[in-house]
Design a protein around this nucleic acid. Structure first.
Length: 703
RNA sequence: GCACCCUUAGCUCAGUUGGUUAGAGCGCACCCUUCACACGGGUGAGGCCUCAGGUUCGAAUCCUGAAGGGUGCACCA
């Protein structure tokens, strides 16, 4: 029994002193690289691959709590499978994050009193590139701090030439397969950011606005947007609305309107809801999706009323040049003076789309842009998901995804921003007609390059196969399809759905067999973290304060898939105490000579724990596995077994057995402290002179 | 409008395929500086598992309905 534990154990565990050195050891071993892994612990070669493609963080800031969750969960899976003898690849990356990054950079410009409008595109692009690259390397350092055992040799960035080449191939193939078109369609236009956005990049907010009823010839029409009504020469009603049966499609009449008399034409269309307002509406096809569709069905002309900055065009006559907000009151005033206001409902509540970044109202505009025929791409995805090719955690995300895919609409992938992958298309104009060429180089003289860039999700959607070097690289052959896609639940449509669709389209296979979606990390009161609320918890600060292992445990325990998790000081602190408990157990065990035999009842009890923990990990119940380990180590091992063993040297073999194997089970959860203690254990093969292996490649203690 | 989720201890939440006395963390009360650890140890209080039916030998768990709360999607004039 008489023996001294190593000196360092006499002090409380100091994660700050231990962690950087441990990470350095791992990195130097090169075991993050699947090609450099030693034979599996059982001595057999690692044949079965296990791959996770890391969600590439937006390289425009610092790692936040959400990043820390994915690093923790993915690292857990990777470390577990590495110990199980798989050929494990965790492929890191970074995302240029088009619009997201441009918005961040524009805010920075604003602070400096500058604006992107009027800047040379190439100058702006270069500035953002430098900004992005600086952030990228900063974030990589942070990821190391969190213990990420990813293969840095294989790191990818979305703007690297080989990635861009694959994205271009996909674009060309979609065009050739008639799954992509360029057309004049309603887009979601943000008048602050001066770009179109996909449906997913808009939010809806509920608002109360006056609903006006105007006399329009013999009809009363209802609208919340009087300022758009200048060009409204078509009056629409439902074909079976009995109140208007006397009017026939195509009937024309002269009537008094905002800026004088106009000729109005009757249109019958089922899109007009008899229940809403008076059941009659006029249409503004250039600035409303539903009106646009009506105009298309009836082959009506459409005309722009509002410009890209939200100001009225000359069609508005005396109101031209006014901002639409100011124009509304003035138009109503004029109609009032003309006696055309029938009534106003001040209590009308409706939902308006806003830009998800600036919350400014979206102004629908007709623009000539690129659209992916999403329905066609979604169909194979729906079939694969229904077939069960992909398992979802939590399970109900499958329903949510299927519901979204079944109602999917064409995807606008053109963005009017410089920070992105340029769209490889060229146009030649001959009067009204336009010739289109898809390719990186102009096909000849007189061609004009598309000035737009891709929606960033168009490239991210190809990430799993693009990073692995589709179609010919060995990595693609070895590691695709991947095993797990672990990311935030908020990315299910933006990213997961697109990866499934584009992965199936390009490779014929689903890109991953399991999707695990974690919930948002909130502050203690369950609120979303935001800078304006001042409730942001920085994972790096927590890691410095309590140790990365404690942070990781805090992010795992209580974190069920899909459900928001609260993160706060006290919670992480309690796992720092746990780390210290483990440290002291090690001190106690190491103060004894290893003698006697392992008691079968302890072995059996431990085996049960190992089996349960293994099953929990296999079933993605990490929170439960972590809790069981926590309780076994603290309440059983420390509180009972260690106590019972005091003064009984014959227990020491059992203590060593339990400690060693507990370290193995805990390693995926708390990699630093377990590796550190492991390094202080007596080498099992002292006589053979073999140096002790790193814990990260030790065999998992359950099969 | 369509879809999805939630309701369990003061708070935040677990509870895996239905199976003894329903659990954890934090908080709370009281006690203990005992030789691995005060970054510790011990003891304890606290629950008609939202409600109403049903299935079952047995329901927090499965089914139906109600009430309350939350989220996502969507071309609402």
């Amino acid at each position: 029994m008489a023996k001294e534990a190593p000196e360092k154990f006499t002090k409380p565990y100091q994660p700050q002193e231990v962690e950087p050195a441990i990470y350095k050891k791992w990195a130097e071993s090169d075991f993050f690289n699947p090609d450099q892994l030693p034979p599996s612990p059982a001595g057999t070669p690692r044949t079965e691959s296990y791959t996770i493609i890391m969600p590439p963080p937006n390289a425009n800031g610092s790692l936040h709590a959400g990043h820390a969750v994915f690093v923790t969960l993915e690292d857990l899976l990777i470390r577990y499978n590495r110990m199980r003898g798989k050929k494990t690849l965790w492929l890191p990356g970074a995302d240029h994050a088009g619009f997201e990054t441009q918005v961040v950079y524009e805010k920075k410009l604003e602070k400096e009193g500058r604006t992107r409008f009027g800047m040379q595109p190439s100058v702006l692009r270069n500035e953002i590139l430098q900004f992005t690259m600086a952030n990228k390397s900063f974030m990589e350092g942070q990821m190391r701090q969190l213990g990420a055992s990813c293969d840095w040799n294989r790191e990818k960035f979305t703007l690297e030439p080989d990635i861009v080449a694959i994205v271009y191939d996909t674009f060309k193939k979609l065009y050739a397969d008639n799954l992509l078109y360029r057309g004049d369609r309603i887009v979601n236009w943000c008048s602050k950011h001066q770009t179109s956005l996909s449906n997913l990049e808009t939010n809806r907010i509920s608002r109360k606005d006056p609903f006006y009823y105007f006399q329009y010839g013999p009809f009363v029409i209802g609208t919340v947007r009087p300022e758009t009504k200048f060009g409204d020469k078509y009056v629409v009603m439902h074909p079976s609305d009995a109140r208007y049966a006397q009017y026939k499609e195509g009937d024309q009449m002269e009537l008094e309107w905002i800026n004088g008399p106009i000729i109005a034409t009757v249109i019958k269309d089922e899109a007009s809801d008899p229940e809403v307002g008076s059941g009659v509406m006029t249409i503004t096809p250039w600035h409303s999706g539903i009106d646009f569709e009506i105009a298309r069905r009836h082959n009506l002309p459409y005309e722009q009323i509002i410009d890209e900055r939200g100001k009225l065009l000359p069609i508005a006559g005396e109101f031209a040049g006014l901002n639409i907000k100011d124009a509304r009151a003035k138009v109503v005033e004029k109609l009032q003076a003309k006696g055309l206001v029938v009534k106003v409902d001040e209590e009308y509540v409706h939902e308006v789309p806003v830009c998800y970044k600036c919350e400014r109202e979206i102004e629908p505009q007709v623009k000539r842009q690129w659209f992916v025929k999403a329905k066609e791409l979604a169909q194979p995805a729906i079939e694969a998901i229904e077939r069960g090719d992909i398992v979802f955690y939590p399970d109900h995300f499958k329903k949510i995804l299927l519901n979204w895919l079944s109602g999917i609409e064409d995807w606008n992938i053109s963005r009017q921003i410089v920070w992105g992958i340029p769209i490889p298309a060229w146009y030649k104009h001959n009067g009204e007609s336009e010739e289109v060429f898809v390719g990186e180089e102009a096909p000849g003289e007189g061609w004009e390059r598309d000035p737009d860039t891709f929606d960033t999700w168009f490239s991210s959607g190809q990430w799993p196969f693009a990073t692995l070097g589709f179609p010919n690289a060995n990595d693609f052959k070895t590691f695709y399809p991947t095993q797990v896609m672990e990311t935030g639940g908020d990315l299910i449509f933006f990213w997961v759905a697109r990866m499934i669709m584009l992965g199936l389209y390009r490779t014929g296979k689903v890109p991953f067999s399991t999707v695990y979606l974690h919930g948002m990390v909130t502050s203690k009161d369950g609120k979303k973290m935001s800078k304006s609320k001042g409730n942001v918890i920085s994972p790096l600060e927590m890691s410095e304060k309590f140790g990365t292992d404690a942070l990781r445990m805090g992010l795992i325990i209580g974190n069920t898939p899909g459900t928001p998790t609260a993160l706060y000081d006290d919670k992480i602190k309690s796992y720092k105490l746990f780390a210290n408990k483990l440290w002291n157990i090690a001190r106690f065990v190491l103060s004894q000579e290893k003698t006697g035999d392992i008691k079968p009842e302890f072995k059996q009890e431990f085996d049960t724990l190992a089996r349960e923990v293994t099953e929990d990990i296999e079933q993605y119940r990490f929170y439960m596995a972590a809790e069981k380990l926590y309780h076994y180590v603290w309440d059983r091992f420390a509180a009972e077994i260690v106590e019972e063993s005091k003064g009984k040297p014959e227990y020491s073999a059992s203590l060593y057995y339990i400690l060693e194997n507990s370290l193995k089970l805990l390693h995926p959860f708390m990699p630093f402290i377990t590796e550190e203690i492991w390094g202080s254990l007596p080498a099992p093969t002292q006589e053979s002179g073999q140096p002790r292996r790193l814990l990260m490649v030790e065999p998992w203690p359950f099969n």
